[in-house]
Design a binder for these strands. Structure first.
Lengths: 317, 317
DNA sequence: GTCTATAAAGAGATAGAC
DNA sequence: GTCTATCTCTTTATAGAC
């Protein structure tokens, strides 16, 4: 059986190479620039070979999405230890925005590209309200975290969750990173409510959605609107968090309350801009982050579908 | 000179036809599906003819953007009359979300497609803080409004602002709809602050940006995330507005100190869904609005640039 | 498994005849 | 002004040789 195993391993390896190449292309040129030909060229294989591993460009995109969700989840994990639920939520909010700013193309792919990509990670949102306990969420998250560290070193480091078992069902193996992340937030919210710091009549699910929308709005505008944060991104995030979680005087990072101050990760207290991803990448920063100058992000043409030209913006205009 | 005038009129007319066709394509199939060939086919001209009126696809897109901004501004105009600044802001927020939900493709084009499109409308955001008085904003808005009613009847009715003089400088004639809309909001905000209902130490520009981000987040998630508003969109918007502008329950809203609890205008209370646009269109509604099932939105290929395929989602997958 | 070659579709933009 | 014809470029995806 050694032979079949070797073959299986080789197949897996090629699969990884494909995803690595795809990830690099997306990071560098945006999702719109991702094509089978480019990937094939990058790994020095013919385009046809890719179809032996992925049924379509879309399947590759979904695999990348799964990685992205896991990556986002991973940034949440250490924050679960923050004792005060309000501070925890603030830290989560900052981490969320920091993630989006640091990984614009990943964020775009996951939350701004295609409804099917976005929906892939959020399966049980409706019924999720009282489902997972903080402990359970942490357990799941921990598993994902551990799996990640096994992954590649040079690249953003994810992959395991996605490539391990998510060949056809990208974002929903047994534990769904998207749901797990959601649960972390909902748990904090319920604690908050239990502590009487949130109106008892408030539906946490609604609150959570509106809160999420605020964070998403900040990230999305930052990635799309060139003039968005006139003020420092930090400040805007601070004001938003204060509006939702109360505290006078925006601006600075309330950070962690007390006990968790010893946190090994500085991520919770550091201002949004200084966020550094676990993988060790530089992490983009400031208000106008990466966004590969000339090229944008959007959609490409399909076989029978359509696609206009827009990238020319910087190229031809 | 009658002859040159007629020719000029005919040229203008064709220009309008081009934009009309383009608008229809975008509404129906999304921006990504907008191509010169399609437009040409729709108006029964050759593709080459389009280039006599627009230098590129991009220029057409920008003209559509200008229309979109004007359209959005128009929905703001009547709300300026609301006396209470907090209620006015809430009404503006609801109108904003309603607009995005009712005109998903327009909203996408303007705020979610390309930074250059989004930035086109917001020129003086940075210095806008104390710039325009409510009166000035209304004056601008009124002008745009008036201009609009001259425009076509069957179609969404805009165009004048864009087509009148924005051949090469699409979104910034003399009065910029984007800025005007922004000023309307900032004015209300300053009134709020003047009335002592907003922390004196709060920077209105920052507050405005964070508030805008919240609204944008709600719309953007609604358009992109299939499961987004688990709760009725109305409810989520209400919670968000309360968080920012205060009202009994809802977390605690440190932003606003007291009052503003008695709501008078029904326009401020009307649920988002019931919004009807001034033009008299049906106005889409509910949580999962249009979003032309099969197709998405994104970017197309340029001459030398790149472009993957993505639309296949529903077509080939 | 992998490649070459190609089908089938789409795009933006232009030259030059009329 | 308008059209025809064309150039150049992109893409996904597959057939069939090796």
């Amino acid at each position: 059986m050694g032979i079949v195993e070797r073959k299986s391993r080789q197949k897996q390896a090629l699969r990884e190479r494909i995803l690595d190449a795809a990830r690099r292309i997306v990071m560098r040129d945006g999702f719109a620039a991702l094509s089978m030909r480019k990937i094939a060229e990058a790994i020095e294989y013919s385009p046809a070979t890719l179809y032996l591993h992925f049924a379509s460009r879309d399947e590759i995109a979904q695999a990348l999405c799964a990685e992205g969700y896991a990556q986002l989840l991973e940034t949440f994990v250490p924050l679960v230890q923050i004792a005060d639920p309000a501070e925890r939520l603030k830290a989560l909010g900052r981490a969320y925005v920091a993630f989006g700013v640091a990984h614009p193309e990943t964020y775009r792919l996951i939350f701004m590209e295609d409804p099917s990509y976005t929906g892939a990670a959020l399966s049980g949102v409706a019924a999720a309200s009282g489902k997972a306990t903080p402990v359970a969420a942490v357990a799941d998250a921990g598993a994902a975290h551990e799996a990640m560290e096994i992954a590649a070193a040079g690249t953003p480091a994810v992959g395991s969750v996605a490539s391990g078992k998510a060949s056809l069902a990208p974002a929903k193996p047994d534990d769904d990173p998207g749901d797990a992340a959601l649960h972390i937030m909902l748990s904090a919210l319920e604690e908050l409510k239990a502590a009487g710091r949130l109106s008892a009549s408030m539906d946490v699910a609604v609150w959570a959605e509106a809160f999420w929308a605020t964070l998403h709005g900040i990230v999305a505008l930052n990635l799309t609107c060139p003039v968005f944060p006139t003020a420092p991104l930090d400040t805007v995030v601070g004001v938003a968090l204060d509006a939702w979680l109360g505290t006078q005087d925006a601006g600075q990072s309330p950070g962690v309350t007390s006990a968790s101050r010893s946190r090994k990760k500085k991520s919770a207290e550091a201002p949004v801009e200084s966020y550094v991803e676990p993988g060790g990448e530089p992490a983009a920063q400031s208000s106008q982050p990466s966004a590969p100058s000339g090229k944008k992000s959007t959609k490409p043409p399909g076989p029978s579908a359509v696609k206009p030209a827009t990238k020319r913006k910087a190229a031809s205009a």
